[in-house]
Design a protein around this nucleic acid. Structure first.
Length: 801
DNA sequence: ACAGGTTCGCTTTTT
DNA sequence: GCGAACCTGT
């Protein structure tokens, strides 16, 4: 989605409808002849495609041909003459998804020739709309979009100005809060009192100040793009009506990921005709932590009266064992809309489960396994590395795999690492570009004023800021005044003069148009000394950074001017460099959503890591359920072979910690799981396996190891296992003495409970003696605390402060 | 102004 | 255990 002119769509909107009618007539004729896009759809898909009018919720399980149905629906709308392509609003979450759809729609069997103007992310569509109506929220149409970095820098200034200690109250935290507020569509005056008191009682005040500041900067952040449009729609009926009429049909992908603001935006736009089709899967909602509301999809029927619900349940991706394993896990969640995936593909490998001594061993085993599969193993055909993926819960888990794969020379690629446009050198370069396009971009100026080093330190910058503020001008002009009034001397003054001259010249060159924007960009990077700075840098990263700068300049070629480029970057940030060589993919479970691989490895299934302790502490049952959905997403990525593993010991923050198998492992249905017990993994095997399930056997052999290592008897996982063992009539481990659960104890807490303390944060109870408790805090170490100063971690997580 | 030492604080991530 | 971010001495 690069550089089509955003105004085109509006010109088209103003144009008479004659062309549309002709297109419609043509579409109808095409449908009469044949509708190839309807062939090969199963009954559910077909229903989802043919129910064009009124609200439709397409509940599409993993691998059920959702995209195909969505595409067919668009084709059906267009080719049957119901709507022109530019009368369909199609919203996705990522640019990648939008791009993919655009490409697929142009090809057979759909063959939609005209581009879908209004297909894009919530944010990119909102930018287009907001540029048109910016003045209604006090912005000019050429407003800039701030990224997280700018946002934090701005907030920090406000925080310091308020005399708040930004150590104790980091700007990041406030940025996070404001983000969440915007996700919930709370403007500063609509902010509930309970929220406004956050951030040392200053949250509300600072939020309001921040919004004011953005307005004077003629800027907005990502959240504003949506929030401003919602505000405009709510306060300007005529504007809303215009778009309600224009967008005759609305399609939404990944509806389970929508936040409140996005939901309101959609409801407002759909309120007239109600022709809205939302596609999603409540079981794959994994972005609650960034404001997604599963409630939106669960409530759909209530929100849109007479809504038709279509379930896509036939899975075309995975074997029955994989589906059964995934279903077994997700069944543990409450409040699902409910779907039962089925497949016609019978047989195949069971889901494999294996325990390891530690994380390194796990990485070693997976590396070996990948090598074996590459050559063909266990009667399976050889699988290419591109067909294999390792999906982890947290990115720090990737390290052990990278280390291992580097030593054995196994090619891998990490998906979703630091992205191109987030890199230091790219952002610096872009700050220069921003200043060329708009010299009043103060944040960009602050970023590069002393990069490369110009002898302009804190003191000089403060002088510039003072001058700018007292004269009510931008920093660039403030700097100019400062030089004119000789307010700055020495080397700094000379260098600042050079920078200002440079900015004038580059800006003029860009405007005159004698040079291409690419030449202007090169000139700026060269003359500012920025390129030179990296050439003189002898750190190992420097060459890579120079390469990146070259790549950045090359990327300019696709755009008409710098402005268009910056716009694109602010929103698109996509960075999939195609790479022909075969490589194993390593990524987080979150990054894996929507992807599929013949063979998938799911390492690190240990309680605390996965499900993540923090998730459970902060969000309790809600958090656990989201973790479970993450497990579901992970398993359903696999087509043929899914291998789950856990380690008894793992290095966390440099410290060795022991761990218990994830509770999700207990939820895997035995009949669909094969437990691998690699020979020689443990010094001893067996012991008390008895007639326990295969799943339990593996868990147990590992548990004994872990148990021998350290005091793990307090963990919920251990207690759970004991319960299970009791139920199965297995022997109790002798070391259960620490399991003090004294019903008579004065304290409401028992050993192993997760608790929260106002000062020390989260921790777990190590020992309980009446009301006196020993608590091992995650951060503050072990302390003796009286029970009344503690709350259950779960309860604390629900009331942020 | 800046290099070198020290402390802090650590999911998930898109736009 | 590691990197960023902050502090201190020159």
């Amino acid at each position: 989605m690069s550089s089509y002119n955003e105004d085109d769509a509006f010109e088209a909107a103003a144009a008479p409808r004659g062309g549309g009618l002709a297109a419609r007539a043509m579409g109808a004729a095409m449908e009469a002849r044949t509708a190839p896009y309807l062939d090969g759809l199963n009954p559910a898909q077909r229903e989802a495609v043919e129910t064009l009018d009124g609200p439709v919720l397409m509940l599409a399980g993993a691998g059920t041909g959702k995209t195909k149905a969505l595409m067919s629906r668009v084709a059906h709308l267009v080719l049957s003459g119901r709507a022109r392509t530019d009368e369909i609003l199609a919203v996705t979450f990522t640019n990648k998804a939008a791009k993919e759809m655009r490409v697929r729609l142009e090809k057979e069997p759909f063959g939609i020739p005209t581009p879908m103007r209004w297909m894009g992310t919530f944010h990119s569509i909102c930018v287009k709309l907001l540029r048109r109506h910016a003045e209604l929220v006090g912005l000019k149409s050429n407003f800039t979009i701030l990224d997280t970095d700018d946002q934090i820098r701005l907030l920090k200034q406000l925080i310091v100005a308020e005399g708040i200690d930004d150590k104790r109250w980091p700007a990041r935290m406030l940025a996070g809060l404001i983000d969440q507020w915007k996700n919930r569509a709370w403007t500063p005056d609509a902010l509930p009192a309970s929220e406004a008191g956050a951030y040392n009682h200053m949250g509300g005040v600072l939020y309001a100040q921040y919004q004011e500041r953005l307005k004077t900067l003629n800027a907005c952040d990502f959240g504003d793009l949506l929030l401003h449009m919602v505000t405009i729609f709510q306060t300007h009926e005529d504007v809303l009506a215009q778009y309600q009429r224009w967008f005759r049909y609305i399609l939404v992908d990944e509806y389970q990921d929508t936040n409140v603001a996005q939901y309101m935006w959609l409801r407002l736009l759909a309120a007239g005709h109600k022709n809205i089709c939302c596609v999603g899967d409540d079981d794959q909602s994994i972005y609650g932590w960034r404001g997604a509301e599963v409630g939106n999809i669960l409530r759909f029927e209530k929100d849109f009266e007479g809504a038709k619900i279509v379930r896509l349940e036939q899975n075309y991706r995975s074997t029955e064992h994989i589906l059964a394993a995934a279903s077994g896990v997700i069944a543990g969640n409450k409040g699902r809309l409910g779907k039962t995936l089925f497949t016609e593909a019978k047989g195949g490998e069971k889901v494999r489960l294996i325990g390891h001594w530690d994380g390194e061993e796990e990485a070693r085993w997976i590396g070996d396994e990948i090598e074996a599969m590459r050559g063909g193993t266990r009667g399976m055909d050889p699988i290419g590395l591109n067909s294999m993926a390792i999906l982890v819960r947290a990115s720090h888990q990737m390290r052990s795999f990278e280390d291992r794969f580097l030593t054995i020379g196994l090619p891998y690629r990490v998906i979703g690492g630091p992205r191109f446009y987030e890199r230091l050198e790219i952002r610096d370069a872009m700050a220069y570009f921003r200043l060329i396009v708009s010299p009043s971009d103060d944040l960009a100026f602050e970023r590069i004023v002393n990069t490369p080093k110009r002898g302009l330190g804190d003191k000089a910058v403060q002088k510039i800021q003072m001058m700018a503020r007292t004269n009510g001008v931008s920093l660039v002009d403030g700097a100019r005044l400062l030089l004119e009034t000789k307010g700055l001397g020495g080397k700094g003054a000379v260098e600042l003069g050079k920078l200002l001259d440079g900015l004038d010249r580059w800006g003029a060159a860009a405007r005159v148009g004698e040079m291409s924007h690419i030449e202007v960009a090169e000139m700026a990077l060269e003359e500012s000394g920025y390129t030179e700075m990296w050439q003189n840098d002898k750190t190992p990263e420097a060459p890579g950074r120079l390469d990146n700068l070259k790549e950045l300049v090359k990327a300019l070629e696709e755009f008409e001017n710098l402005q268009g480029f910056l716009e694109h970057i602010a929103l698109v940030m996509d960075n999939d460099s195609e790479d022909a060589t075969e490589k194993v993919s390593i990524m987080t479970l979150h990054a894996a959503k929507g992807l599929e691989f013949p063979a998938v490895f799911l390492p690190g299934w240990e309680d605390g890591l996965f499900p993540s302790q923090r998730s459970m502490d902060e969000s309790g049952l809600k958090g656990l359920e989201e973790e479970r959905r993450l497990a579901y997403v992970g398993i359903t990525r696999a087509e043929k072979l899914c291998t789950i593993s856990f380690a008894g010991n793992r290095r966390v923050y440099g410290q060795w910690q022991n761990a218990l198998p994830s509770r999700f492992i207990d939820e895997l249905p035995e009949d669909h799981v094969e437990v691998l017990t690699p020979p020689g993994l443990y010094g001893h095997q067996g012991g008390m396996m008895g007639q326990a399930s295969p799943v339990m056997q593996a868990a147990e052999s590992d548990l004994h190891e872990a148990a021998a290592k350290a005091n793990v008897y307090n963990s919920p996982g251990w207690r759970r296992l004991q319960e299970r063992q009791g139920a199965r009539g297995l022997s109790q481990p002798s070391e259960s003495k620490n399991m003090v659960i004294d019903a008579q104890a004065v304290s409401a807490f028992t050993v192993g409970d997760r608790v929260f303390h106002q000062k020390f944060g989260y921790g777990s109870i190590e020992a309980a003696e009446g009301d006196k408790l020993d608590v091992a805090f995650d951060k503050a170490g072990t302390k003796k605390v009286v029970g009344k100063f503690l709350v259950a971690a779960e309860a604390a997580g629900d009331t942020p402060f």
